[in-house]
Nucleic acid binder design. Structure first.
Lengths: 121, 121
DNA sequence: TCCATACCTGCGTATATATGCAGATTAATG
DNA sequence: CATTAATCTGCATATATACGCAGGTATGGA
């Protein structure tokens, strides 16, 4: 019998897990399929140790699953819909100092969901 | 020119702000309109000091706005759509040990969105 | 003006998270 | 079997958050 308190705790845990810039970018990176640790690290221009450290809690909470192939570990989103759900949140970003709000949101959404260009890392 | 890194930082900040059980319940509480601090505290069965402490960062990041009427401060969601967006996340909650997943999600969603019954506080 | 109510803020302590670095594991390769 | 590559884990430190409690501010009423 799950009480609302229990649900709020689980929800908060999920959000806390997502509430880190690196991890958000990692999830976006995995949006279109599995990738190994080194690839993720290269895409985000971060040391692979750091990616590993971020993957640990994501794995523990089953947000990602991994598949080992030789010495490479390929990770994928357990629930890919989470990535789309995160994109929805872009419209809630701080509205201060936006001249044309809807245009701004559209620009941010495109930036976020585009294939990783080196200039946006 | 917002880079993806900047966006990920802002997103993470937003998520961190939401990533607390009390604050999630407060947002759900404000879903259907404004409420003053004492009412929120009563609904969640928490000391009003704590509600105030949670409201401070939410206010600072413009997730809520307040209106003062006499000595009461009525708070409301600046972007009510956030509450609905949070409800969407219920389906991402840990799937472990669910016998009938869709029924479970439905049950959780109803519990979460129902008018606060004393038994679920 | 004095008091009570409704909130807010500051402070100290406890706990959690982030992150660089060193070292351990595991698997392919020579 | 030694070496290297890919990844994971442990540790220490820095920083951030949470939360009870004390004290402060503002408003309305006696």
């Amino acid at each position: 019998m799950p009480s609302r308190i229990v649900v709020s705790r689980e929800l908060a845990e999920l959000l806390k897990l997502l509430a880190h810039p690196d991890r958000l970018r990692m999830i976006e990176e995995l949006r279109h399929g599995e990738k190994d640790v080194t690839s993720i690290a290269a895409a985000l221009d971060l040391p692979s140790t750091r990616i590993s450290q971020h993957l640990a809690p994501l794995r523990a909470h089953r947000l990602v699953e991994d598949r080992r192939e030789g010495r490479n570990h390929f990770y994928r989103l357990t629930q890919p819909a989470i990535a789309a759900w995160i994109v929805e949140a872009l419209e809630f970003l701080d509205v201060r100092s936006r001249l044309d709000e809807s245009a701004h949101i559209e620009r941010v959404r495109e930036l976020w969901t585009a294939d990783t260009p080196a200039s946006s890392r």
